[in-house]
Design a protein around this nucleic acid. Structure first.
Lengths: 161, 161
DNA sequence: TGCAGATCAATTGTGTGCAATCGGATTGTA
DNA sequence: TACAATCCGATTGCACACAATTGATCTGCA
């Protein structure tokens, strides 16, 4: 039980640090689990996420990709450049709006999906974990993402000047 | 739309991807919450974690730091170099074992703790989130970290020792 | 004593991730 | 038609994060 004493402050502060540190370590650990599985495909984890988005949508602008993956162009530009260099995707400016760059799968990129289908199972094999725990984790993560992304800066600053 | 069909295989595979992606996004989002709070202290989030460890232990070897934070020397070396350059910590080789590098707080580094005490509260103010959800998240994360770090490569290789 | 193997930190190279800025293109407005 | 504001992606600079290698040191064993 959570002792409902008025002085719960210290616990909350400690909890915050535990959660953030655990979040960072967990993300790195799970991504590390993907590494050997993705290595035969020649993909890093972020590249795998980009390919997942393209396998689903076939054709996306850089901005759309950034929205889906929560990444900006500073990260996506070099990443896509590498995917282009290995022949998995193509980049081309949209004729109707020359500002927009459309990313599209190549034949090779589409074909890679077949090998990628085995990835989730392989990762799950390494991460032997209770399904219920996994569902609970996903729900918790959804809450944090919502709280962290909607939360404006602090509560609200009184305008001064 | 969570269809509870007896053929749960596809759902599990999809869930797996959601979890890992959500983990990456959540970690980045929460670390982004720390950024403006840590900025007045002149610290990045990984640097803040190193300082937290030193405020607690006062004196640690690079290896001990790596064990506590789950980071290797390739990450810690340049990070510590920056903390040394701004005068928060010192590095010195151990006299008894010249391979070991001992990291220690300077006066400035110790004094910074006073300002850092306000950090958790400020982050919690930005992350307006139910405490129960936070506890659930921490517990879930603990499970994943345990599962991801203890899990050897694939299921099991035939012993060859 | 002497040497092979292990340990530890640093370094190098690659790949994200983010802030800030730039240049080209489009859109709204006068 | 001009022109300012906006939008979009690329680029630059900095800071992790990890694999692989290197160099210095220590330890165990013959």
């Amino acid at each position: 039980m959570t002792a409902a004493t008025p002085d719960t402050e210290p616990d909350l502060l400690a909890l915050d640090q535990q959660v953030c540190f655990a979040l960072a370590v967990a993300a790195r650990s799970v991504i590390a689990l993907y590494r050997p599985v993705l290595e035969p495909l020649g993909l890093t984890h972020p590249q795998y996420l980009v390919m997942l988005a393209l396998w689903q949508h076939r054709r996306l602008t850089v901005k759309e990709l950034g929205g889906l993956l929560q990444l900006d162009s500073g990260t996506l530009s070099p990443l896509l450049k590498r995917l282009v260099s290995v022949g998995l995707v193509t980049k081309a400016r949209d004729g109707r709006d020359e500002r927009v760059v459309v990313v599209e799968l190549t034949e090779t990129g589409s074909a890679l999906r077949q090998q990628a289908l085995a990835v989730p199972r392989a990762v799950m094999a390494r991460l032997r974990m209770d399904v219920g725990d996994l569902v609970a984790l996903r729900d918790s993560l959804t809450s944090v993402i919502a709280a962290a992304t909607t939360a404006g800066p602090p509560p609200a600053e009184q305008s001064q000047t």
